[in-house]
Design a binder for these strands. Sequence first.
DNA 1: TTAGGGTTAG
Length: 660
Amino acid sequence: MFAISRHFIKLNQLSISFSHHHYHSQSQHKTILPNLNFSLYEQKLQQREVLETKLISLLNGCNNINQIKQLHSHLIRKGLDQCSFVLAKLIRILTKLNVSIDSYPRLIFNQVRYPNAFLYTSVIRGYSLLGPFDEAILIYSRMRWDGIRPVSFTFSALFKACAAKLDVELGRQIHAQTFFIGGYESDLFVGNTLIDMYVKCGFLDCGRCVFDEMPERDVISWTSLIVAYAKNGDMNVAGELFEGLPEKDMVAWTAMITGYVQNAKPKEALKMFEMMRDAGVRTDEVALVGGISACAQLVAEKHAQWILDVADKEGLSPVKNVVVGSAFIDMYSKCGRVEEAYRVFESMKEKNVYSYSSMIVGFAMHGKADEAMKLFYEMVETETKPNRVTFIGVLTACSHAGMVQQGRRLFASMQKDYGVVPEADHYACMVDLLGRAGHLEEALELAETMPLEPHGGVWGALLGACRLHGNPDIAEIAAKHLFELEPNSIGNYILLSNIYALAGRMEDVSRIRKLVRGKGLKKNPGCSWVEAKDGNIHEFYAGEMTHPKSNEIKKELEKLLDTLKREGYKPNLSSIVYDISDGEKECLLKTHSEKLALSFGLLTTTAGSPIKIVKNLRVCEDCHLVMCGASRITKREIVLRDNMRFHHFRDGVCSCGDFW
DNA sequence: TTAGGGTTAG
């Protein structure tokens, strides 16, 4: 009750003070209203409106804070320093320029005695976008206290703040208020931001409820929900929603494309991209990035060429557009063509932290540590500041090349020289670097003493290093943490059992196997794929001979292995931990998917052209050995991407230096 | 004033 009566008092004050301030003369004549010159009043009002409109259009043209400050002092001179409408616009522009609301904008706001709903909302919105988010809520409380009725944008801004804070409880409270103060719950904007708030906080069902109950929906409501389902891994529901969407715009299409990409369904993503083009929808840089990422996942360069053509047609070639360019760098790197990636990088007119980082990560993946470091120092010379990903790139580069000292120095300088605070991921890189280089004790110590809680990546790096150097004792420590953090990740169990097998501890091997069986975990089948001459992708699963050409593939492989054996190749049986005879182990090795893919590649691609294979798991020792030999005998370059990195086999040698 | 995005380690 108190709030309501106060509301009316304030509203009265507001109207009086408003005219009082700006139209001093009129308000003085308030008691003798019959004598008031209405035409003069209207004229003044009109003048003011013209001035306001002019100021707002001037504000729209502002793109730096100094211009705004100039306009602000002009505003004060004109007696408009209390004009909420213009000031609201001013604060909106400042927000757009990322000017911290706590500084200059807050000062402006504080000087206004009776801010209206728009001014309040612009400040709330500023805080909601730039933080501190709590301040948005405080200003809203003050607004309510002052009896100012929110507008729908006020709620949009507030829900944005709740989403940023991931505070669904607060969001719910404010949601309830939309019912009580004016029926905002049926407003389209409010509904859309509500959906977004709920799904960002992880309450997809609540978002769905809002959606279902909205009296009116637009393409934005649908897209919000499609994205939410996609992020939740539920592409079926996302697809159903998309089907039901009456008018699909570019953003909705893009949401589907990137949804498929994020859920590792690149084929579906490319199909969507094609359908979008067929539907005659425009393609912007975000949509293109979706298509390019899909190609990167598939290692489908023929498709990438098509996307490049689309980009050119839209005037968004990698040379002109930094976003598209960075995506192409990443794609070419992941397709094994790091030189092509660098060609794109060099051709780009504008470069930013994404372009540099993508290129550095690309070099790192391909074992080109020197190039990665060189580019990093080049980057430092420019205005572009390295970020957390850049450091993951350079640290990985050092790690793959065994550059321990260099890596240590970089790690130490991250925060000191570049202001990038090391996160668990960076510690994982350091553990990897030390562990790979054989400093297992030191790596363990780092994992145990790091100031942050180590995550799976840290212990996983240590476990991987233990496999490389055959250290079951430290492996056990790492595995213990991993089994707690990632109890259902089968790879960790396999890795540990491999380490036991290498050390001849067969009892431990069977213990782990029993553990895995007890948990009902299934081994991921090894899978490799290779792009044939016509651009079609052929998949091979370990132990599966279902390909139409499987007889020829088998024959070609036998031929290759015989030649290798005559030259001294001995199958490396160590990666098979089953308790079976050596003969059986050798047979099993022959069915590894990357060998099948290699054989298919030898059969079907043109002599002299490189064979490119992608594998979902880490390549095994024996396959690595065979790839080396095959590259020498057949005089073919073999590029193999496993789940870790690239291997370039040329003339019997691998770029990883047998160190992976 | 609300929806889609590029670089990430074992």
